[in-house]
Amino acid sequence: MLETITATRYVVPLKEGGSLPGVVEGSDDGTWVVKFRGAGQGLKVLVAEVVVGELARTLGLRVPALKLVELPEPIAKYEADEEVQDLLTASLGLNLGVDLLPGAFAYDGSQPPPADEAATILWLDAFTANIDRTPHNPNLVRWHGNTWCIDHGAALYFHYSWPSKGSNPERFAAQRFEATSHIMWGVATEAAATHERLSAQVDAQLLERILGLVPDEWLEATDAMPTPTDVRGAYVENLLARLASPQAWSPAHAEGAR
């Protein structure tokens, strides 16, 4: 599991989108952007953040450090803003902390990453079905001259069908990805070579290790998946099925659109 720290002070909300993440000081003397379990998107967003973020890190991309942040009751109790207090009260327990990168600024395309790095970002998002990295909403920042990947909660959409439809790896495997709409489409090159290089790094052992970083309490059980082990297995099964069917999603198969 990820390292766990305790929130010692809630500093300020980040009013971005509907999730209302907040800047929090931790028991490790660090400052963290915390994504709260009580936000409207629920626990599955936190799972996607960990799985895709740590997969990105394994593939060589820059991702802010992630830690679990235990939110104690006194922090929620003494927050003056009523909306924030309600969110904190609903988020007691383990939340996700993303290392705050002071002075980072939003990616605007004026300083693109090297082509091979851009191709890795594009491949990662295609593989995990992350539709939320577009020119309109890049979810990339520039920090100390490098490009950093953030905000992966929109990926792994398949888990939102649980429990109503259950796990369906074949459906996720066949889900197409619009690579031409991705912010790195005009920067990335060598899509076929990138797919060959990166797909060789992803296997069941790697995915199981990454899923092991997710707390049991974030893995919502269903009738078909009654234990955290079952839920982890479903994530691995879906991702391996997609890996085995690259013709549906790999940017290598979209090269003809250039």
Rank of each mutant, 00 (worst) to 15 (best):
Q85Y: 06
Q85I: 05
Q85S: 13
D86P: 04
D86E: 14
D86K: 14
D86N: 09
L87S: 09
L87K: 11
T89S: 08
T89M: 03
T89I: 01
T89L: 03
T89N: 02
T89E: 07
A90F: 01
A90P: 04
A90M: 01
A90R: 15
S91E: 08
S91H: 11
S91T: 03
S91V: 00
S91F: 02
S91Q: 12
S91K: 08
L92Y: 01
L92K: 00
L92I: 03
L92D: 00
L92F: 04
G93C: 06
G93Q: 01
G93H: 01
L94P: 07
L94M: 10
L94F: 07
L94H: 06
L94Y: 02
N95Y: 02
N95P: 03
N95K: 00
L96I: 15
L96A: 13
L96F: 14
L96Y: 15
G97D: 15
G97Q: 12
G97I: 14
G97V: 13
V98C: 15
V98W: 11
V98D: 12
V98Q: 15
V98K: 15
V98M: 15
D99Y: 11
D99W: 12
D99P: 11
D99K: 14
D99I: 04
D99L: 12
L100E: 14
L100G: 12
L100S: 13
L100I: 11
L100D: 15
L100T: 14
L100H: 13
L100K: 08
L101M: 08
L101Y: 07
L101D: 00
P102Q: 02
P102M: 01
P102W: 04
G103V: 13
G103A: 10
G103Q: 15
G103R: 14
G103T: 13
A104K: 10
A104I: 09
A104N: 02
A104G: 07
A104L: 13
A104Q: 09
F105C: 02
F105V: 03
F105Q: 04
F105I: 05
A106C: 08
A106M: 12
A106Y: 09
A106S: 10
A106D: 11
Y107T: 07
Y107L: 08
Y107Q: 05
Y107D: 03
Y107C: 13
Y107A: 09
D108E: 06
D108W: 05
D108I: 04
D108Q: 04
D108V: 02
D108L: 05
G109E: 08
G109N: 11
S110W: 00
S110N: 05
Q111T: 13
Q111A: 09
Q111M: 06
Q111N: 09
P112L: 00
P112M: 02
P112K: 13
P113M: 12
P113T: 05
P113Q: 12
P114W: 04
P114V: 01
A115W: 12
A115K: 13
